[in-house]
Design a protein around this nucleic acid. Sequence first.
DNA 1: ACTCTCGCCTTCAACGTTGTAGCCTGATTG
DNA 2: CAATCAGGCTACAACGTTGAAGGCGAGAGT
Lengths: 341, 341
Amino acid sequence: MTPTLREVAQLAGVSIKTVSNVINGYPHIRPATRERVESAIAELGYTPNLTARNLRAGRSGAITLALPDMGLAYFAELAAQVIETAESAGLIVQLEHTGGVRERELELLRSPRRQSSDGLIFSPLGMSQDDAGALNVPYPLVLLGERIFDGPTDHITMRNHDAARAATEHLLESGRRRIAIIGAHEGEVIGSAGLRFAGYRAALEGAGIAVDPALVGYTGLWHRANGAETMRALVETGVDFDAAFCLNDTLALGAMRALEELGRSVPDDVAVIGFDNLDEAQYSIPSLTTVEPGRGWIADTAVKALNARIDGSVSREERSRTLFAPYRIVERESTLAGRST
Amino acid sequence: MTPTLREVAQLAGVSIKTVSNVINGYPHIRPATRERVESAIAELGYTPNLTARNLRAGRSGAITLALPDMGLAYFAELAAQVIETAESAGLIVQLEHTGGVRERELELLRSPRRQSSDGLIFSPLGMSQDDAGALNVPYPLVLLGERIFDGPTDHITMRNHDAARAATEHLLESGRRRIAIIGAHEGEVIGSAGLRFAGYRAALEGAGIAVDPALVGYTGLWHRANGAETMRALVETGVDFDAAFCLNDTLALGAMRALEELGRSVPDDVAVIGFDNLDEAQYSIPSLTTVEPGRGWIADTAVKALNARIDGSVSREERSRTLFAPYRIVERESTLAGRST
DNA sequence: ACTCTCGCCTTCAACGTTGTAGCCTGATTG
DNA sequence: CAATCAGGCTACAACGTTGAAGGCGAGAGT
């Protein structure tokens, strides 16, 4: 089908290895020979077979990015960043979905498909700390997110606790006192929900306010519908509140929608802050104040860290590192001066 | 590093080929032998080397999906679908960004990286009909979208003209008569913008209404900001209109935001319809009436068509087909009964 | 008893590359 | 003038896998 070195060699009247040498820039080749080879390559339209090269080299030139679901805006934007960074490092990105399901995640780590790429950037969602052992894999692995800590691999994450605290403090500073939280997970300690909840609690306690269980909205999934539903339920309990910290933007957008439907004004009646700084957050009505989680930095750093393990510039023995992305609060309309001003 | 067939064979005391046979389910193997091999595999944690397998098979088990940008919701959702479908067909998906830039698209078609996957699903944006020749590539290719028609490859698209006509008619049926269009491209004939504009024109003319140039909002990019800006400009001209057909949902969401800011109510003053049925459209305020473009069908069909070319069940000689996805109007709040009811 | 068939397993070669070793030629050197 | 060396090329082996072909014994058929 496609031509191989053998055919190019035959046409140019040289050995197969000489063609290989020309292609790989080996210096000691007579100009005349080089020229003959090059024109043979051009004539046949030869391109090297990467599979063979990879087999020879023991490398594939590809990395795998495993995410819960590309349909979720946060992951889509993360993937876009990873692809850009990998592209400029000459790497191909293979994408896998886990659906956030523990079994699929464990399966993914063991799958023979891992052999077809040189390393994995993995954002677990279903696995928990107990599964950390499964991360002990024979290939380079970089972990994202906050499901698992102290694993045996490099880990890129953000300071969820601090960022959530800052987000809550932002609401407190604008005079809000009755701050609901949307998206909590019952009993979770680590994981985005657990850490962000702890940051929320810390901010409140720092301001001398106790966490009111009536203001804690639990919801397993973080989709728009869940945000809307949880907010609706909260309003229907009749409890008083003047702000909501939503554990991600998607929840926040759903919650804002529910508030609007129920006749509560954002930010006048209820200030809303999200988390993730999705592209969408700046175009919602009202635009959404949120936490920018350093997604670009995360993608860059993850690809670089993985690459360092792949090319051996950081060896397998070297201790795993945990790197924290810088965050910042992006202030928009949904938390503008409220009731108390 | 990772064990190979050779080591498994040694441990099990059989030939390398027998191990291979066990793995590939060759029937004539004594249970005792099979068991020894299997326990050797388990003991060593052997997994087959896919690169070698692929070299042998002349296949890579991967397909490439090339899209303008995963950061755009439409493409992210499309990619999610493609990944799901490919996964269940046992294929790995490699993702490439073109940025919608013609040169990167042409480069992508020729790149040696194509050799590392078995085929390409390609959604061009920068290339135009004149570049159709570049689609004559030596590997299986499936084209998406409406930039190029009558290319040499299978093509999955939708009936943009009909769907746009239906969308416009939906507005007409609710009594709207002054229908603006947002996102037109000057002089474009094919391409999403051109085809959808033609459908808009056809609907209006079918209702005995001429296209009013004052109601045509041009914008090159289809981002939220462009939708908002174009709508703002339209309102500022002072022209009268009671509906807007936005050529995609993102534009529509931006346009709705601008209308809201300018004190026009949706749908009471202006009905808005979009195109794409993004997940987001059902959660906006108001929720957005839109055209569901059959994204799931497109992803499924694209993977299947590509796979058919790859495994040879549809040969290279067989004529290329153009397949049209089914569409439908999804009615939501943004076009509910307006002025004239 | 002799072939035939069939089950079970092995050897060989090949997929397309590239690293290693080495061969030949002509120029340089003491 | 032999020894040395560098330049320019080639042959071979190997990366890990699997299809093709074939060997060997045991039971079936004649």
